[in-house]
Design a protein around this nucleic acid. Structure first.
Length: 512
RNA sequence: GGUUGCGUAGCCAAGUGGUUGGGCAGUGGUCUGCAAAACCUCCUACAGCGGUUCGAAUCCGCUCGCAACCUCCA
């Protein structure tokens, strides 16, 4: 059962620079391609933000009843270190493999596992298909042949390059996505740098002839070599989603050159734009600056979860002072819109931790609330409107922060009903049950949060039995006004992370 | 230097031509044996300077500041 079924979804298309109404290529279906990670090292939190954002988009389409094929690739070849498209340049994975004296595929396997582990902790759903570049060499070779046949590429010393100048001059729209224009390309012509193989600096490799020391290489009609980075996404999206599919997503930093070149390859091979809508997730900043692996300026998810991040600010203080659970991090990510930059800070995470706790506690209250017989539903309309607004917010370019704010407004009503500041006689049982559904669906299905306290359900049952005993003994002390004993029990429990709350209907406990 | 985006109260962060977004922190209350939690209250801002408009934080221009991309990046 769904709480409500939104009808239209509007999304911001990077290609047009406008919000558009989503109309699927195939009725009731969504083809979604998202550029995945390059598995040459551990993913950092910035990578995670993008994938969490698209996880929510994936979840929301499914929630609205669409059948989604979500393809997210694993890049395991083709990403170069150093001078790009220079025949001597090294593959990121190959470089790491040589440094550690292992097979490149061992590197790939290790970091793919690590990536999956982090994604699982952050409670993201697996994509429908997670194709690897090395598993699609044939498809990539075929695509290069088509591009060559169509005249958009040239061969030089066993490598194949895409002819961006010819393509741009043919008015195919090169630069449309990233805002780069033909004139800029022409200006650059004067500065040919030292890339003698390429006819123009903006040309990019479709196939690279491998240098002798290069570990990852395959046979091709042109040379023993390897595919260019941009090509895998074109080949795999076409294979699994068709020549034209609905949505292509990725991080903002991939807009140029990666996505621009991807479009050029698709148009060059198939004659049509690959995706109707392009969605770009913005960057996660760390105290105002983009995380960067090469500068060592980044947060590893596992360090954040364990509280072992050692990054220092300019005063030598720890940037992140404590551990934050995966769901706190996910909640934090939800509080910014996917198209905005977001600043990761210690205080921001602490705020998220409290907000997340409030929502889970509120949901638990709601589950156990029952409207009295004969209640007059004076509040129903207000609550319904808030819930409906939350779905509208999500339908408008996946506005999680706005939808979240509605849940908090609902939360204060629910807590007020529970606390007696609002009368339970003013809300109907139907409304309470609908609110329960709305909370459930938003928190767990759409936002993809997970009740972490339920993670250890069996432990919880044991704990609860013990706690009932402790609470009962403390209650005896309180009845005889033995405040020394009752306060000692409460203080000691607090030291081990358990809060007692004395309410009208007895004492409850909460584990921090 | 070029391109794009941003600049919102102590912090994070939505919105956007006319009515309080939200969270965290802080204030004062209610409740409580005291707390905690919860609820209510207060703090009520849109970088600066011009322009358009009956009216702009929201549109336009300029200035300043920040970020991202232009090289591998989610």
């Amino acid at each position: 059962m769904k709480a409500i079924a939104p009808k239209t979804i509007r999304l911001y298309n990077s290609l047009s620079g406008q919000k558009e109404i989503f109309t699927p290529v195939h009725e009731g279906r969504v083809g979604l391609y998202v550029c995945g990670p390059t598995v040459y090292s551990d993913a950092h939190l910035g990578n995670c933000r993008t994938f969490v954002n698209f996880d929510i988009i994936y979840r929301f389409f499914e929630y609205c009843g669409y059948k989604v094929r979500y393809v997210r690739n694993i890049t395991d070849v083709g990403h170069l270190v150093g001078d790009v498209d220079d025949a001597g340049a090294d593959d990121k994975i190959g470089k790491k493999a040589r440094a550690e004296q292992v097979e490149p595929m061992e590197i790939v396997q290790r970091y793919t596992n690590g990536f999956h582990d982090v994604m699982r902790q952050l409670n993201t759903l697996s994509p429908s298909i997670e194709p690897r570049a090395t598993g699609h060499i044939l498809e990539q070779i075929e695509m290069i042949e088509t591009i060559l046949k169509n005249g958009w590429a040239y061969i030089k010393n066993g490598s194949v390059y895409f002819d961006t100048l010819k393509y741009a001059k043919a008015d195919k729209g090169y630069g449309q996505l990233s805002g780069r224009i033909l004139e800029d390309l022409l200006v650059e012509t004067r500065d040919l740098k030292n890339q003698d193989e390429k006819q123009h600096p903006s040309d990019f490799a479709l196939w690279m002839k491998a240098a002798p020391q290069h570990l990852m290489h395959w046979n091709s009609p042109w040379s023993v070599g390897f595919p260019g980075w941009h090509l895998e996404c074109s080949a795999m999206s076409t294979k699994y989603l068709g020549k034209t599919f609905d949505i292509h997503g990725g991080g903002n930093d991939l807009k140029f050159p990666h996505h621009e070149n991807e479009i050029a390859q698709n148009v060059g091979a198939c004659g049509c734009q690959p995706a109707k809508y392009w969605l770009h997730a913005n960057m996660l900043l760390l105290y105002g600056k983009k995380m960067s692996k090469s500068d060592g300026y980044y947060v590893a998810p596992n360090e954040l979860f364990a509280g072992t991040c050692e990054l220092k600010d300019e005063n030598g203080g720890k940037m992140l002072t404590k551990a934050y659970s995966p769901m706190t991090v996910r909640f934090f990510i939800l509080q910014a819109h996917y198209r905005s930059t977001m600043d990761l800070t210690d205080s921001g995470l602490q705020a998220a931790e409290k907000g997340w706790k409030y929502l889970t506690e509120t949901y638990k209250l709601l589950k156990n609330m029952v409207a009295p017989k004969g209640a007059k539903p004076l509040l129903d309309k207000q609550l319904d409107e808030l819930a409906n607004a939350a779905f509208e917010d999500m339908s408008d370019d996946f506005n999680c922060p706005k939808a979240m704010s509605r849940l908090f407004e609902l939360g204060s009503k629910i807590n007020a009903l529970k606390g007696g500041q609002l009368s339970m006689k003013e809300v109907s049982e139907d409304c309470l049950r609908r609110m329960e559904q709305v909370f459930h669906d938003f928190m767990f299905k759409i936002f993809g949060l997970r009740d972490e306290s339920a993670d250890a359900a069996s432990t919880h049952a044991t704990m609860n039995g013990l706690m009932q005993l402790v609470i009962e003994m403390r209650q005896q002390a309180r009845t005889t006004k033995d405040w020394t004993t009752s306060d000692k029990i409460r203080a000691t429990l607090q030291q081990v992370g358990i809060d007692l709350r004395d309410g009208k209907e007895g004492t409850t406990w909460v584990k921090n």
